[in-house]
């Protein structure tokens, strides 16, 4: 994967952007609060104060991190231009790294479960499909074992929560 220096660089650059955004939103909140119906005009008591402070602190810290990722030290560093070039070279390798692909698909399955299945199917069906699918994808064992584990775990969860705790599931 990307060497740590490059990762820090990308990350801190993104954070600087986030910090700037937070500060701007903070000012927007301040403006909104100063208008009716709130009429909070003093900055010191405005709800925008803390976001602005946090945004500025974030920018400062991120810039520090950014600079650190550029300082020559053991572990190698690269000037910004070279960093970007390395990033560009690295991206295509993403698609070839099997670990990452697997992780990506796994996360995607989880996403489908959360955003799609649970909404449209009764809970036990959605969970069953999810666990089955996940275990099969991960090749966690022979197919009959997978089915048994899925049934047992979903059933156990239902038992624990709906009967013992009497808590309603989605």
């Amino acid at each position: 994967m990307l060497p740590p220096r490059n990762r820090d660089f990308v990350f801190s650059a993104a954070l600087v952007a986030l910090g700037v955004y937070a500060t701007c939103e903070g000012f927007a909140v301040y403006e909104r609060a100063a208008a009716p119906p709130f009429k909070i005009e003093a900055m010191s008591v405005s709800p925008g104060l803390f976001p602005i402070i946090l945004g500025i602190v974030l920018v400062i810290l991120s810039v520090l991190l950014l600079i650190k990722s550029l300082i020559p030290e053991e572990g190698g560093s690269l000037a910004p231009g070279e960093q970007l070039a390395a990033l560009a070279a690295w991206l295509p390798t993403l698609f070839r790294n099997r670990d990452l692909i697997n992780m990506g698909i796994g996360v995607a399955i989880m996403g489908v479960y959360v955003f799609g299945l649970v909404k449209n199917l009764p809970y036990w069906a959605a969970s069953l499909i999810f666990v089955l699918g996940m275990l099969l994808f991960l090749r966690a064992g022979p197919w009959w074992k997978v089915i048994v584990i899925s049934l047992a775990s979903v059933g156990g969860v239902l038992l624990l929560f709906q009967v013992v705790f009497r808590a309603a599931l989605p």
Binding site: W124, V148, L151, V154, L158
Partner: peptide, 12 residues
């Protein structure tokens, strides 16, 4: 396991 799982689903 199978029995337990089925029982659980029936109960729920």
């Amino acid at each position: 396991f199978v029995a337990a799982g089925l029982l659980a689903m029936a109960a729920s």
